[in-house]
């Protein structure tokens, strides 16, 4: 009687894991391995691997000017969007932190961008930021051709992405701020601590796990940005908004070079992995878990 139960005990957790592991293998790991495999192959227009060509695709990626431009664009995009999203949503959540009468109204308002689908938001911004007919230039008095000018297009895309990211980050930060224990803040007040001191020495350290989580997801998200680029600028003008994923998409699905596209995908995977490891190394120093 003892034995079969033990076997069951051994098997049970794996049975629970089985559905999700199976799904993850099917939809995450299988495509990943296949992508790496295709990266070493010459693939024809119909998708058949026709010849093993070793590292040729990867060498071609490294020599491709447009790939490096796409990489630079992606880094610029990440550099604008991550700090902007975190800062703006932190400010908004500090504003909404105290529960007052009617505060649920602006809480909802701040979080609402989350409910707008990416493509609809992108299309709306395309109209708002139209150089001649749009509200954006009209209200700010700027004369900028946001998505049509090489110099501003990436910033334009970043503005859209920040707006779309705020809702999600705001929600997390608001919850984190409200979880900061009141007695800590109270004792700080008794010791004569002002608002800035409380924010700097108590609130920020205590919400740092949330900030870290948001930073990591934002980082991965912005390194893999695709949606607004595909909807608004299609990588243009003159490749100034072409990001890594968009480049991969164009190479594989518009130019029918699946092997080459797979090699780009593999390189992107490695880049994103490296950055994720770097942030996790940073976690040990900067994040305070209570």
């Amino acid at each position: 009687m003892e034995r079969p139960l033990n076997v069951k005990r051994l098997v049970k957790p794996y049975l629970f894991l089985l559905p999700s592991v199976a799904l993850i293998f099917l939809f995450n790991y299988y495509p990943l391995f296949k992508t790496f495999f295709l990266g070493f192959m010459l693939v024809d227009v119909v998708g058949n691997p026709v010849e093993f060509i070793g590292l040729d695709n990867f060498i071609a990626v490294m020599q491709d000017e447009r790939f490096w431009t796409a990489m630079l664009n992606t880094f610029k995009f990440a550099l604008i969007t991550i700090p902007a999203t975190l800062l703006i949503s932190l400010l908004l959540s500090l504003l909404a932190e105290k529960k007052r009468r009617g505060s649920s109204i602006y809480q909802i308002m701040f979080a609402l961008p989350m409910a707008v689908s990416m493509s609809s938001a992108a299309l709306i911004f395309q109209l708002l930021m139209n150089p001649t007919l749009g509200m954006f230039n009209y209200l700010t008095g700027l004369q900028v051709n946001w998505f049509g000018d090489e110099k501003y297009a990436l910033t334009g895309i970043a503005i859209v992405a920040v707006w779309m990211g705020i809702g999600f980050s705001f929600l997390f930060l608001l919850a984190a701020l409200r979880n900061v224990p009141g007695d800590l803040l109270e004792s700080a007040e008794l010791d004569g601590g002002g608002y800035i001191q409380k924010l700097w020495h108590i609130k920020l350290p205590l919400i740092s796990p949330t900030l870290f989580f948001l930073f990591t997801t934002d980082l991965i998200g912005s390194l893999m940005v695709f949606g607004p680029v595909a909807v608004i600028t299609k990588g243009g003008p003159m490749g100034s908004t072409e990001t890594l994923i968009y480049r991969m998409f164009i190479v594989a699905f518009e130019n029918s070079k699946y092997g080459y596209g797979s090699a780009i995908a593999a390189v992107i995977f490695v880049i994103v992995m490296i950055f994720t490891f770097i942030t996790f190394a940073f976690e040990k120093k900067g994040v305070h878990y209570h």
Partner: peptide
């Protein structure tokens, strides 16, 4: 109880399938 759990886990996989 454990048997039930196993059965329900199996059911879950089957229902997913």
């Amino acid at each position: 109880k454990k048997l039930m759990l196993i059965v329900s886990a199996l059911l879950l996989t089957v229902s997913l399938a």
